[in-house]
Design a protein around this nucleic acid. Structure first.
Lengths: 144, 144
DNA sequence: ATCGTTCATAAGAGTTGACTTATATAAGCG
DNA sequence: CGCTTATATAAGTCAACTCTTATGAACGAT
């Protein structure tokens, strides 16, 4: 299946997530806004909602004939975790410390840039299955 | 120009950024790793580096015939800011408060899910130019 | 039961994007 | 100066993505 970042690559989908961030919305309500803002058809919106469903960014709940969509934060969190290694670039040490505390992390050592002497390798296995150890496939698609 | 999330949509580019996160690397060094991991050609890697340059994710510095690439955190930070509105989904209130402090924000109100009565519209202007107020163009491309 | 909603799926077209091979530019070196 | 190394660009191919229109399925109301 597609990677979280692939899903977020589309501006319409990002916008839909923004809308859902404020709470559950029906497919129709989402469609109304998106249609107005991007001028695309109802099926187009429905297809985006499908991608969001399939990729775990949104959940659906039936309410009569309507479908109520809500954010499922799981993949967004993955993105957040991936981003973590770069936070050292824009957060100063004190901020980083506070964030550490805020997140209740158990890991030691901060993700500062240019950690040369640091051969940490892959201590944080929690993040991404991204780097394949060996040439995956000639077709270069996402490895699940 | 392309949106930050478009750039991050590619696994090879994400991997390159991961490599650069540990410090400056030459094009050749990046190529060696990526070639081994993804089995793609030197020009392919070079093209990805170009995208990273053009989109502001990486900076280059000449060292003789070599080009040394480094992370430019600016667009990553934009992504982080975009993500901010969803943090309420996975951080509890206390964590959120600590993060607020850590980030030194001046804005009030937290990005909690299901804030129904909240017709915030667009208070946080710092984030995204994403939602166009009106149907932008029939071709639905990224508005710069 | 029939008709209007609400929403999803199907099929097809156009565009974009990521590779490939071939080649160009520039530096390092004998 | 010629040759190798380091890197970028050019041109072309192929696949994937996102639309479109047409249609289907389920619910609600008359």
């Amino acid at each position: 299946m597609v990677h979280a970042f692939d899903v977020l690559g589309d501006p319409v989908r990002r916008r839909i997530l923004e809308l859902l961030a404020d709470g559950e919305l029906s497919s129709g309500e989402v469609t109304t806004v998106i249609r107005r803002e991007y001028g695309i058809s109802q099926p187009a919106v429905s297809q985006h909602l499908r991608v969001l469903r399939d990729s775990g960014f949104a959940t659906v709940r039936a309410d009569g004939a309507r479908r109520l969509y809500a954010v499922d934060p799981t993949p967004l969190r993955e993105v957040d975790v991936w981003l973590e290694r770069f936070r050292g670039f824009w957060e100063n040490r004190l901020d980083a410390l506070a964030t550490e505390l805020a997140r209740g992390r158990r890991r030691r050592r901060d993700p500062g840039p240019n950690s040369d002497s640091d051969t940490d390798s892959d201590t944080d296995t929690d993040t991404d299955p991204d780097p394949p150890a060996t040439p995956p496939a000639p077709t270069r698609d996402e490895q699940t």
